[in-house]
């Protein structure tokens, strides 16, 4: 597997003016990305996670050429992103979850048509790609609608199709599932998984939602305060971090603490009990064991929050 993204000692600082008093202002440097290094192989799907303000978006913006790095070395598809931005653009697709790459006032179909021409996608390729993406992302009924009339989930699907029309080798997604309902999230994850395994598109995904990573990526990088604090497999993240999933069980009546192999009771409140199990392990046997009880009324699983996983990484 050859490296398609090479990052070595990448840094980005911002100078921020802070008001000290009415007239005095103080400049100080904020290190948003503080010397990170990694390589991504062609065809990898990697999750890039971290708390707000950790430097995720700043990294992605340097990888796409939007921001010029303050230091370090950076190559994407063999190019220096900020110096050869328009050339790099043909190799990458970018989806910013909070924003749209579509034209607000144009119908979805016109936005695609325009992008196809901007990227010089040959007509037969364009037609084939559009048909495939419309089919996979269920966009057929939306094509004639102006983008401003689409719901958040519809727009996100529209944006992902827009980012893939020119067959990019690398797809960056910044918080693609933020604000989506459960069904939309599930469909989107499945689409990304297939895109990665079938088309071999390299995916770099930033997210707050660990489930996104679990279902799409085999590798996770964790950034905090501008530094990489973890780079490895998803199971390893949970093993090393020691984060735990919680199963919340509602029973018909209060009973003594449940005894389920692989899980421990962490809290009891009347008929409701909280069971905790390692996040790296499967929850299926625990759920099955609980399902066998006839006094079970309801059951739900809470995934560990990203902040907990990161806290756990520090205290290991």
């Amino acid at each position: 597997m050859s490296a398609i993204i090479e990052v070595d000692g990448l840094r980005r600082t911002f100078s921020v003016r802070r008001r000290r008093s009415r007239f005095r202002r103080e400049r100080h440097e904020v290190r948003a990305v503080d010397g990170i290094s990694f390589e991504l192989g062609a065809g990898e799907a990697v999750g890039y996670i971290g708390p707000n303000g950790a430097g995720k978006s700043t990294t992605v913006k340097m990888l796409t050429g939007i921001l010029v790095p303050s230091g370090g070395r950076l190559r994407v598809a063999g190019l220096d992103p900020s110096a050869r931005r328009t050339e790099l653009a043909r190799h990458i697709g970018v989806v910013f979850g909070q924003r749209t790459g579509l034209w607000w006032d144009l119908p979805l179909r016109d936005s695609y048509e325009l992008l196809g021409r901007i990227y010089r996608v040959p007509r037969p390729t364009y037609d084939a790609n559009l048909e495939r993406l419309v089919d996979l992302l269920d966009l057929g009924p939306l094509l004639e609608q102006p983008v401003r009339q689409l719901s958040l989930g519809q727009r996100m699907r529209g944006d992902i199709a827009a980012a893939l029309l020119h067959d990019p080798t690398i797809l960056y997604l910044d918080e693609p599932t933020i604000g989506l309902d459960v069904m939309s999230k599930a469909k989107l994850r499945q689409f990304l998984r297939e895109l990665n395994t079938e088309s071999g598109t390299t995916i770099l995904l930033t997210t707050h939602d660990l489930v996104d990573i679990e279902q799409v990526c085999r590798r996770v990088m964790v950034i905090d305060h501008g530094r990489l604090v973890f780079d490895g497999g998803f199971e390893q993240l949970h093993r090393e971090g020691g984060a735990r999933r919680t199963v919340v069980v509602d029973l018909a009546a209060p009973t003594e603490p449940l005894s389920v192999p692989g899980a421990t009771v962490s809290r009891i409140d009347g008929p409701r009990q909280w069971l905790s199990l390692p996040a790296g392990a499967s929850s299926a046997p625990v759920v099955a064991a609980l399902g066998a009880r006839d006094d079970l009324i309801d059951l739900s699983i809470q995934e560990p929050a990203i902040e907990d996983v990161i806290t756990a990484l520090y205290t290991r």
Binding site: T64, G65, T86, R90, V94, F96, R99, T100
Partner: peptide
């Protein structure tokens, strides 16, 4: 509104996109 970021990742000079949009 972030649309300038989008222009910077397309294969046409950003100024051209700003002007023609």
């Amino acid at each position: 509104d972030g649309s300038f970021d989008q222009m910077l990742v397309r294969p046409v000079p950003a100024l051209v996109q700003v002007a023609a949009d």
